[in-house]
Amino acid sequence: MSGLSTDYLSYPKRAYGQDHSFYDWRLSQNRPKLEWKNGVKVAICLIVPLEFFPLNPSGVPYKHPGAMVTPYPDLRHFTVRDYGNRVGVYRILEALEEAKSQATFAVNGEIARRYAPLLQKLEGHEILAHGVSTNHIHHEGLSRQEEEALIDRALNALPSPKGWMSPARGQSSRSLELLAQSGLDYCLDWEMDQVPVMAKTDKGDIMLIPNSYELSDFTLLHTRRQTEESWVKQIMSAIDMLAEEHERFGGQMLGLTLTPYIIGQPFRIWALRELLSRIGAREDVRILTAAQINQDFRE
């Protein structure tokens, strides 16, 4: 056996701190205290992805977690996903309206092109660019030009979005630089801290607003098969802990994903109403859009 190449046991980035240059290593106890406006201790960003899942996904470089499953034509998964954009999202919008809350809608370019009436309904909420479609994942195998073209296509489909979330939250090592170059102010793919973190690139800075994978409705209700009761309880536990830590760590935040084809189901929508009502009852918790978080943080 000749074994692996000698490179495999060489570690060129083995040094103090991160192994990339986007942001510095910083322990939570060392970060400057952030204070949200109006005495708010915990900010919540509600992120609603509006995604197009083509019937013929390429699977390059991998299949999006919500992509087709059975052989072509997988009408079953195509229509189950499309339910979210036709029906489920309107239940979410209604629950938000009842609670007078604003959400941040992460919209695929393909959704904007296809579903104009849905885009009109998002007035009063924030619209975030979310790539072209779930079949257009950003990854290392794309050339710089190819990735720039994807970003342009996504941005051109929407009315001047200031923020970005990548399809499947996948990035290449060039993505942040290209997003900054395109004039985007913030990105919701990274979640390494409980507060926003500014990333540096050769083409300017871009803020990374945390987005919880573990508390996402897709992860918790669909992938992990937990209950809606438990989803609400776990989010409220997280909020309680962040509020308790306020004195020591200052304001913190949670990014929560609401997937229309998951939480928008008739048997689940009660849980969103319940969550919004519990959050609404707390003076120390406030739902903010990504744009408001970006602005508050920069101020």
Binding site: L55, P73, L75, R86, Y90, Y115
Partner: peptide, 15 residues
């Protein structure tokens, strides 16, 4: 293979 089966039109639930 088609990206969209085009079996029905988009019909928003609201209204």
């Amino acid at each position: 293979m088609k990206a969209d089966p085009n079996l029905y039109d988009y019909w928003p639930y609201a209204g």
